[in-house]
Amino acid sequence: MIPLINPITLFFASIVTSNILLTNFLGMCSFISISKDWKSSFGLGMAVTFVLTITTAVSWLVLKYLLVPLQLEYLSFIVFIIVIAAVVQILEMVIDRASPALYLSLGIFLPLITVNCAILGAILFMQIRNYGFLQSVSFGAGSGLGWWLAILLLAAIRERTEKSPVPAGLKGPGITIITIGFMAMAFIGFSGMIAVQ
């Protein structure tokens, strides 16, 4: 039942051809509000990548060795949310102890991540597509990097649009969403290369 896709291919596919943000619309809320500032975007993107990689691995193990044998798959949403919250909490503590400098730059974003749709979305895709362990981890890491790439690109573009003469009604979120639309169109250009799913 595991799809035949090389984890490395999947990794690159989830960065470019099926970017979790630009093709699946996941993680938009924090994407629009944070991308005003390049530096925070970088930090949030790194935090998302980090959390995504770890949570996909942990939830794959939980799904395979806990939920499926106990036939509790209908509880999967709650369990995944708890896994995400727990991983974020633990990460926060670990980073705080291990590297206060990193904590200062990533720390404020970590609580935001629990409710970032990209994380839960990637886990649900992983469950629906029946990925194996290696595939799940590379899908998680790739999706995170794809998200990071997208938010950095958008933050860079937004620095320019802030200064451009935009119609009053479109200022702020409006023009940002149009920008995202154009980015999504650009990313569609990659879509013939590799097919996921």
């Binding site: 009604g169 409006g174 023009i175 969403i177 995202i180 639309g181 154009f182 999504a184």
Partner: peptide, 18 residues
């Protein structure tokens, strides 16, 4: 495809704000 959704949301936003 995805981009049209973004454009339409932005249009609705523009209209509503005006």
């Amino acid at each position: 495809m995805a981009p049209s959704a973004f454009f339409l949301v932005a249009l609705v936003m523009w209209w509503a704000k005006n």
